[in-house]
Amino acid sequence: MTALEVDAGITLVALTLYVVFGGADFGGGVWDLLASGPRRDAQRDLISNAIGPVWESNHVWLIFAWVALFTCFPLAYADIATYLNAPLTIALLGIVLRGAAFVFRNYTSDNVALARTWTVVFGASSLLAPFFLGDAVGALATGRYAWTSPFALSVGLFDVALCAQVAAVFLVRESADPALRDDFRRRALRATVAVWVIGVIPVLLARTAEPQFFAALTGSTARIAIALAMLLGIVVMVLIARHRDTLARIAAGAEVVAVLGGWFGAQAPQLVPGRYTLASAAAAPAMLEAFAVAAACGAVLLIPSMLYLFAVFKGPGRVPEGET
């Protein structure tokens, strides 16, 4: 494997982990906005407690992916930052407001009016950020940076649905209260159906509007990944319905990986289709190697720390499995 391939892999892994974990945190914000019914406040508390200890480290995956992009593929990075300036700026605004509003809300919970304001900001920005990040990815796939095209916008919508789905699946296992679990079980089922339906839209739109991307999407690698993603969606539903909540989490994560695999499979080795390939956008070999070495050293520290964090706050035994 060349350093270029290693670095592209690391960037993709960082992005994927961001979509899974950071996406789940955005999805939590979406469910916070949609909290309803007799257990509305309890739902919000559950979301706060689930996101609280982990959102900052989940968020770093985005920073890391962004830094990896400019370190390893500076030419494509400059191009993307220039032509996707608008959607990325809006997404950035969403990211800033989400993080700040989440913390502010938690520390104002005894002042009802203020807490309500921050709750709305938290929820709205949790929609804004994934929508425009998804839109930017869709725009990238067009090769024309057409971020206002229906196709790109539909990818944004899909991303929001995906975040909500993953969040709901993750949240089921966060509570010991069976009623609360059932709230999120229902949400997880509905959201998975939504992902299935909304996921078809970009594909249909690509068929007419983005023939090149559509051809790539139906090529061998991407096709398998997409079929797998759809299959995993069904698996998630079955597992959730059968109260196999831990397995459902894994399946939902795998589903996201498959979705991103489909996108990447359709695009590789193009980074910006028609403008830059991974190789033509790459930094000097010395930098590519240095990055790979740095990432390997960093991972040695990162992986155990992250496992410890998740073991303390998300580990087994926190909530009894399968309790009803």
Binding site: G52, P53, V54, E56, S57, H59, V60, I63, F64, V67, A68, F70, T71, C72, P74, Y77, A78, A283, A284, M287, A290, F291, A294, A295, G298, L301, L302, S305, M306, Y308, L309, V312, F313
Partner: peptide, 24 residues
């Protein structure tokens, strides 16, 4: 980016450690 990206990448790992342990 391709010249001075290394400290930014290392900084990314420092952020990870910082964010993880601040959560803890």
């Amino acid at each position: 980016g391709g010249i001075i990206g290394l400290p930014f990448s290392l900084e990314g790992f420092a952020f990870f450690i910082e964010a993880i342990f601040i959560g803890l």
